[in-house]
Simulated scan of single mutants.
Amino acid sequence: MSVNLEADNDSVVLGESPAEAGTRRVIDSPHLHKLQRRHFLLFGVGPALGTLCALLLLFFRPIGAPEIVALFVMWAVTGLCVSAGFHRLFAHKSYETGPIVRSLIAICGSMAGQGSVFAWIAIHRRHHECSDREGDLHSPNLAGPGLRGKLKGLLHAHLTWMIAHPFPNVSQYAPDLMRDDRMVFVNRHYRKWVVLGLVIPALGCALYEHSWWGLLTGFLWGGMVRMFVLAHGMWSLNSFCHLLGKRRFETSDGSRNLAWLAPFIFGESWHHNHHAFPRSASFGLAWYRIDPGFWFIRLLGGLRLARNIQVPSAQQIAQRTAR
């Protein structure tokens, strides 16, 4: 799940007072669309171009161990903090943690460049409210019948919805986060965290290789390529996981599970399970299903950094399956 708003809230519609704008569920304005297009170009198109440059440079110098480590470590850190943080902790309150860990998770999740913490949570909660119905900003199932409709919906859900869309009002969808001063601070400095996520791998490779070339390749592989790979993995939840895969429970939407994708997107592709049990910290709902996001939460619990981890009982799962 990705969003494309880079401002703190931007909930004021042109021609409306802040009080009037604050009562609207979604907000649509040329000002917001301009911000959304800019975010899409910077953090959607930008990493794609950076990935292309990284691949072209392979003709001049092969990728080394520092770049591979930078890519994997930054992908794992930012991806886990989007999956276990933005999604399970902030959007669904599947577990609790202390203010320091909470803030660090929010900062590292912001480095993914998939939207500020307020914007990400507001859009995701809107998605659950209107899943695969009118109002869902990135459903692939609302573009018409037949193969043409499915392909058009797939493209919309995976990519083009981010160019311009009505924005769920943060004051309506994320008031709990707005009351948290630490989250307000993290949200306000969103773009700085994205830049930090690019600087860290660049400096790491430069210092290890003692060269300007290391600075460039660290920036490209640990920054641009990492953002590109992570983004398309998470965007597949909007597109492929509402079109392809298996269903186990009765839900009102078209969510589906894609088991083979789970190792690559931190267990997020148990998407149908998640829609059946939104409060569950476990998306796999079984120990043998690959769910790195949940494993990370269990690790935090083992370190006494997470508590009240929500997981449905076997009886609750069986009852839901029977229905």
Rank of each mutant, 00 (worst) to 15 (best):
D180G: 04
V73I: 14
N238Y: 11
W235V: 00
S131M: 05
R307H: 09
L32K: 14
I121N: 14
A174N: 12
V186W: 09
M111I: 07
R24Y: 01
S131K: 03
R88N: 09
H128P: 07
N4F: 12
T97W: 10
A143F: 06
A157K: 06
E250G: 09
Q172T: 08
L41C: 01
A174Q: 07
Q114T: 04
P312S: 07
A112V: 06
I100K: 10
R179V: 01
L305S: 07
W295I: 10
K152A: 05
G214R: 07
T23P: 02
Q315W: 13
H272I: 07
W213Q: 14
S103T: 14
L177T: 00
M234V: 06
A286P: 03
L177S: 06
L104F: 06
R279N: 08
I163N: 01
R279Y: 15
V26Q: 14
E96N: 15
K152C: 07
G153H: 00
A7E: 03
L104K: 01
I309N: 04
L5N: 05
L35V: 12
L14Y: 11
Q319C: 14
L207I: 11
S2T: 11
H210S: 14
I100R: 11
S83H: 01
A19P: 00
L32Y: 02
A322W: 02
L300G: 00
L196P: 08
A119D: 13
L32M: 11
R226Q: 15
G22Q: 09
A7T: 13
H124C: 05
L300N: 03
V73D: 02
E268F: 02
S11M: 09
D10K: 14
P278N: 09
S239L: 10
L220H: 02
R323A: 09
F240V: 04
F266R: 12
H165C: 13
I265W: 06
H124V: 00
L215A: 13
V184K: 15
H33K: 09
C130T: 10
A119W: 13
Y95F: 15
V77Y: 02
S110C: 12
L177E: 07
A259Y: 15
H165L: 03
N187E: 11
V3H: 03
D132F: 15
C205F: 05
G146A: 01
